[in-house]
Design a protein around this nucleic acid. Structure first.
Lengths: 204, 204
DNA sequence: GTCTATACACCGATAGAC
DNA sequence: GTCTATCGGTGTATAGAC
């Protein structure tokens, strides 16, 4: 008896096609906008017809859902990479966290729309796709706590502040830096408010 | 000779029907969501068929556009009414401005979506509908300047801060007050940052 | 002039042949 | 697993009834 094969070639192929579909979907979302994504368009871009997509995703929203999960997982990977490089100084640390989020959000409008706004009618992320988003928030909470930002209300204020700057930037000055320029000043405002010591000239 | 009639009854009737259409549209937007609005639905609610709407609006987006203009005009009326009641104290004045905006935004999710977010694909407000929005911002700028908040960057920071709190409230705690509770604290943070004197116990 | 009936192109989704 | 065919829905255009 040969037993079971060690690899499931069919599952691998299925997963590869799923990724191909998602890549095409991201391409269209970036090109034409997140809401302008259509199944026919996605399918044709990879040499398929629209109904074939239903062998890989149960609905159009399931595609959005997988994209949502991908985006937050990517961001989780990013902050994992950034974590060892975080400055020791609390104030610089908070600034680094804010900049990481801000830059990631501003770099891809469609992605930010999907991750942080409720712009697709009827789309609600599944628990599985939401998990990395929760993990990111948990991670951010820990980092902020390490830098002296503690308590739900302070974290809520921080997220609202950064989110507000991102949204203003995206909505009113897409591609510019009118609100991006205010980020450091905004963090200083926040840091002073919650009592994070100023960074001294030669580190803290 | 009788001359011209003093009233254009036909134009009045036309305008009345336009308002009736918009009222139905607001109703549906509040009930089912802004994006779920359909022409057939709007038309049936006032005893018409969908194509008849084209006698009053050139497209569905033209309806959204008129709603956009209505919402900002309403808000302009509101701040006109609020203006005489604004406190003298700079800090309380800024708080009043923030509360007025925050409460108006949170009171109607669909309206806030239309006014302040880019949630309808392809919808761009016309210059005529945008005019009251500009007027509101101009008015807010003058009020803030009167309370000592001057310069584009400070106003930008203020709008981003309040907008961020509104969006966080709507997105993560609709109907609750998790971020609404932070509003006063946020304004104090901002006021301290831009050097607005604290309100004393017995007025300023 | 107002409104309707009809039609068109497109959408997401489903059924069934191969 | 992928296709064609099709369904009910959408926004939109237009011809014509009244």
């Amino acid at each position: 008896m040969l037993g079971q094969p060690t690899r499931d070639r069919q599952a691998e192929r299925q997963e590869a096609t799923r990724l191909e579909i998602l890549a095409a979907a991201w391409e269209i979302a970036r090109d034409k906008g997140l809401a302008e994504l259509t199944l026919r368009d996605v399918a044709f871009r990879i040499g398929m017809r629209a109904p074939s997509l239903y062998s890989y995703f149960g609905s159009k929203n399931a595609i959005y859902d997988a994209m949502f999960g991908q985006a937050w997982t990517d961001y989780l990977t990013l902050i994992n990479a950034v974590e060892p490089t975080l400055p020791r100084s609390p104030r610089d640390g908070v600034k680094a966290i804010a900049h990481t989020f801000f830059d990631y959000a501003v770099a891809d409008h469609a992605r930010h729309q999907l991750m942080n706004q409720r712009t697709i009618p009827g789309f609600v992320p599944s628990p599985e796709s939401y998990a990395p988003a929760i993990e990111v928030l948990e991670r951010a909470r820990r980092h902020l706590a390490r830098f002296g930002v503690q308590g739900n209300e302070r974290v809520d204020l921080f997220t609202a502040l950064i989110g507000g700057l991102v949204d203003a930037q995206q909505a009113n000055d897409l591609g510019g830096d009118r609100w991006a320029r205010l980020l450091d000043d905004a963090i200083d405002m926040f840091a002073n408010h919650v009592g994070i010591p100023k960074t001294t000239g030669r580190g803290s």
